[in-house]
Amino acid sequence: MTEPSLPPGLSAGERVVLFDGVCKLCNGWAKFLIRHDPARQFRLASVQSAQGQALLAWYGLPTDHFDTMALIDEQGLHLRSTALLRILARLPRPWRVLAWLRLVPRSLRDWCYERIALNRYHLFGRHEVCLLPSADHAERFLHD
């Protein structure tokens, strides 16, 4: 039996959060993860970056538009509310407690998630270009 091949640029056991780099809400989420993930369990990649584009293509997701955050972990690709809750479950308290929302049916969770995701630019705004990580956070992002 052969081991499944890993997506491009990832090592075994690595967890990556893909996010929309021009979305102000999504950038806020990335900053939240940097601040509240002291164990550095998650790496980040914007969907507009070369690494993000390669990961989207690897999983057969659109590379020209993206309307959800994604998590890639040891169990594969997770989207929408499932990705969010899997991330929260790995963060320290009090954030970990929010993972109990897994008990809400996924269809309802995803419906709520999609209402925000589809209106995120209108509700929160967007940057003209992807923001670059600061020097002290650069190691948290996937690079070429």
Rank of each mutant, 00 (worst) to 15 (best):
Thr2Gln: 12
Thr2Glu: 12
Glu3Cys: 05
Pro4Ile: 07
Pro7Ala: 10
Leu10His: 00
Leu10Glu: 06
Glu14Lys: 07
Leu18Thr: 04
Phe19Gly: 03
Asp20Trp: 06
Gly21Ser: 09
Lys24Ala: 13
Leu25Val: 09
Trp29Glu: 07
Ala30Glu: 11
Lys31Leu: 14
Leu33Gly: 13
Ile34Ala: 09
Arg35Ala: 15
Pro38Asp: 09
Ala39Thr: 11
Arg40Thr: 11
Arg40Glu: 15
Arg40Val: 10
Phe42Arg: 08
Phe42Gln: 10
Leu44Arg: 04
Leu44Gln: 02
Ser49Gln: 01
Gln51Gly: 08
Ala54Gly: 09
Leu55Gln: 03
Leu55His: 04
Leu56Cys: 05
Ala57Asp: 02
Ala57Trp: 02
Tyr59Thr: 02
Gly60Cys: 03
Thr63Ile: 01
Asp64Leu: 11
Asp64Ile: 06
Asp67Ser: 14
Ala70Pro: 07
Leu71Gln: 09
Ile72Trp: 03
Glu74Asn: 15
Gly76Val: 06
Gly76Glu: 04
His78Leu: 03
Leu79Gly: 14
Leu79Ile: 11
Arg80His: 15
Arg80Ile: 05
Arg80Met: 03
Thr82Val: 14
Thr82Glu: 15
Thr82Asn: 14
Thr82Met: 14
Ala83Gln: 07
Leu84Trp: 09
Leu84Val: 15
Leu85Arg: 05
Arg86Tyr: 00
Arg90Ala: 05
Arg90Met: 00
Arg96Gln: 12
Val97Ile: 14
Val97Asn: 07
Ala99Arg: 03
Trp100Thr: 03
Trp100Asp: 02
Leu101Val: 02
Val104Glu: 06
Pro105Ser: 09
Arg106Lys: 09
Arg106Glu: 07
Ser107Asp: 01
Ser107Glu: 00
Trp111Glu: 05
Cys112Met: 12
Glu114His: 08
Glu114Pro: 02
Arg115Tyr: 09
Ile116Trp: 00
Ile116Phe: 02
Ala117Tyr: 04
Ala117Leu: 08
Asn119His: 06
Arg120Phe: 09
Tyr121Leu: 13
Tyr121Lys: 13
His122Gln: 15
Leu123Gln: 06
Gly125Arg: 04
Arg126Cys: 01
Arg126Trp: 01
His127Trp: 06
Glu128Pro: 08
Val129Phe: 11
Cys130Lys: 07
Leu131Lys: 11
Leu131Val: 14
Leu131Ala: 14
Leu132Tyr: 08
Pro133Arg: 08
Ser134Phe: 06
Ser134Thr: 11
Ala135Tyr: 06
Ala135Leu: 03
Ala135Val: 10
Ala135His: 02
Asp136Trp: 08
Asp136Ser: 14
His137Phe: 06
His137Glu: 13
Ala138Gln: 13
Leu142Glu: 04
His143Thr: 14
Asp144Thr: 07
